[in-house]
């Protein structure tokens, strides 16, 4: 009974933390509670969530993807450079860039048997060079009229709700369905929980893993596109400083770094927590730079809380 209530608490803790944080910030500044502000805050969180949503899958299989910020930057460059030339087709092109980068990370990590954080770090180096190559190392502006024609799905609003939120929620639903309803989702959990067992039951673990990394790259690509649409430009350093918050919102949401446990909605809640913490710090007057310190410690603390220590005997 005690055990059960404890796991139940762990399930709902992130949500409780989010509500408490929102109340705290709201007490500090009443305008925070206005519907417009709430929507704006949520919309601002969506790029972070999109980036983190794919990484969640990778963390659930017990790996890590450190290449997402480079991938998002690269796709923003692809979008900005090719939108004037190819029109709407620049969007799938940019997504494909993310798919390839994610696949490369997965392939290197599984087939070449390189630990994922080094494999994805190495891939991110290549991806960064690619981003620089696409944009010729410059920041590329997306002309306003092109943005009007092709990117309103990301930056406009519909029924009074910013489209970022629609996009974010759509991917939340799709990825949750993939994770919750498909065999792939079950295998992702299985690999995270006990990779050898899944292997022994005759399943091609590498293929599932590569699929997870590919999804991670894809989502980073989508995040890069939405980011570029919001900012009206693409640049090879656009998504820098996003990696740490992205991993933070996954573990803060309650997904364990040791794999097996987690879900996309947790990352959604985690992203909102990270955003509210950031807003709260700005209210109190913590500088943007010092916020990195706080995120560094939040990350370490959240990992410490959520990690399943029974599973790893030797911690490297």
């Amino acid at each position: 009974m005690k055990m059960e209530s404890r796991t139940r608490l762990q399930t709902w803790l992130p949500l409780i933390v989010l509500v408490v944080l929102v109340l705290l910030v709201g007490l500090y500044d009443r305008t925070f509670f206005s519907a417009g502000n709430m929507l704006e805050v949520t919309a601002d969180t969506m790029t972070l969530f999109l980036m983190a949503s794919g990484v969640t899958l990778v963390i659930m299989i017990g790996g890590i993807d450190l290449s997402v910020q480079a991938v998002a930057s690269m796709t923003s460059c692809i979008l900005a450079v090719y939108l004037p030339r190819f029109g709407i087709f620049a969007i799938p092109l940019a997504v494909i860039g993310g798919v390839i980068a994610g696949f490369a990370g997965g392939y290197v990590s599984t087939r070449l048997r390189i630990p994922s954080f080094i494999a994805t770090l190495a891939v991110s180096g290549v991806v960064l060079s690619a981003g620089n190559w696409f944009s010729e190392t410059k920041s590329v502006v997306i002309p306003g009229e092109l943005s009007q024609t092709y990117l309103t799905w990301a930056v406009g609003d519909f029924l009074g709700v910013p489209n970022e939120i629609w996009v974010g929620v759509a991917f939340l639903l799709v990825l949750s369905a993939v994770l919750g309803l498909t065999p792939f989702g079950r295998l992702v959990r299985g690999i995270g929980a006990q990779e050898r067992a899944v292997m022994a039951s005759g399943i091609d673990v590498d293929r599932i893993k590569i699929a997870a990394y590919t999804l991670s790259g894809t989502m980073a690509g989508v995040a890069g596109i939405v980011m570029a649409a919001r900012l009206g430009s693409g640049s090879p350093t656009l998504a820098n400083e996003f990696l740490l918050p992205a991993i933070a919102c996954i573990v803060v949401g309650g997904t364990a770094i040791t794999g097996g446990v987690g879900s996309i909605w947790r990352t959604f809640v985690g992203a909102l927590i990270v955003q509210v913490v950031r807003i709260g710090m700005t209210f109190i007057g913590v500088s943007v730079f010092a916020q990195q310190i706080v995120f560094g410690f939040i990350l370490v603390a959240a990992v410490a809380v959520t990690m399943d220590r029974a599973k790893v005997l030797v911690i490297k």
Binding site: L244, A290, I293, V294, F295, G296, L299
Partner: peptide, 9 residues
């Protein structure tokens, strides 16, 4: 990773 970011911050 966390400490590195905290350090730069």
């Amino acid at each position: 990773l966390g400490m590195g970011f905290a350090g730069i911050g």
